[in-house]
Computed example of a mutant assay.
Amino acid sequence: MGLPGSIGVRSENAAHRVAVEWDGPDGVESGVYIPRRDSGSPLNVLLGGRLFPGVHSLARFEVEESEHDLHVAFTSKDSSTRVSVDVRTADELAGSTLFPDLAAASEFFRQGRIGFSASRDGRRLDGLALNTSKWQVRAAHTHAVQSTFFDDPTRFPSGSATLDCTLLMRDVPANWTVTTPMQIPAMA
């Protein structure tokens, strides 16, 4: 939002992300579609989709972090979405059916650093790109995960949304830049 961190503007935010590919002007492109964003900041909820991309829903967050463990949980203000995740850092990526190793998983997400979210008017997808001079992910093991969003069979048929692996980014300097919106074709 253009405010320095020294002012004390901080917030907990969560994005439900789905990896996607699409046909771009130079061939196949990749990124993520973000069907839902939640924030602990009323300011982010107010300005999301207006001053910066992504409509946000207000949520209450609980975060506990140590050198090796991370617990993140949140409940949306309207209680329609609840998420709880407990992970522990690991020396290597294990059990993934999509990636042979941590390097491949890291590169996939580095290349897919652009996220698109529905706009308030529903006619376009607003884009936001993650920029960092120090891309760094660690493998993690998930001890417990629950998401009423991904577990909802009206959104995802049973077994269609499954956890493949867990990657953790910490202490990575980052900034976000707005990308060109993607127009949604009119329905006939």
Rank of each mutant, 00 (worst) to 15 (best):
L167E: 06
S117E: 13
R37Y: 12
V137T: 14
G2C: 03
P100S: 14
S158Q: 14
D38T: 14
E92A: 15
T154S: 09
T162I: 05
E65W: 12
P173Y: 05
H56Y: 09
T89R: 15
P4I: 08
H141S: 14
S6Q: 11
S119H: 05
L47A: 02
V28Q: 11
A188T: 12
L168Y: 13
P100W: 09
L168N: 13
A118V: 12
L70K: 05
N13A: 10
M182L: 15
L70D: 10
P181H: 00
G48K: 06
P25H: 05
S106E: 12
A174E: 06
D152I: 00
T179C: 07
R138E: 12
D78C: 05
Q136M: 11
R113I: 03
S119Y: 08
S11C: 12
Q136D: 15
D151P: 01
G159F: 02
V87S: 04
H143D: 15
S160G: 00
A94Y: 07
R82S: 08
N44P: 04
D69Y: 10
P157I: 02
C165P: 02
N131A: 07
H56Q: 09
T89A: 15
R50H: 00
S160N: 00
S39M: 05
I7V: 15
S57H: 10
F150W: 04
K134M: 12
L3N: 07
L125N: 03
S79W: 06
R82C: 01
L43V: 00
M182E: 02
S80F: 00
I114G: 01
S79Q: 13
G27M: 05
G115Y: 01
F52V: 04
D164W: 03
G127K: 06
S76F: 01
Q136F: 08
F156V: 01
P35A: 13
S39W: 10
G27E: 07
R138G: 11
V172G: 06
V145M: 09
L130Q: 03
V20L: 02
L70Q: 08
R88N: 05
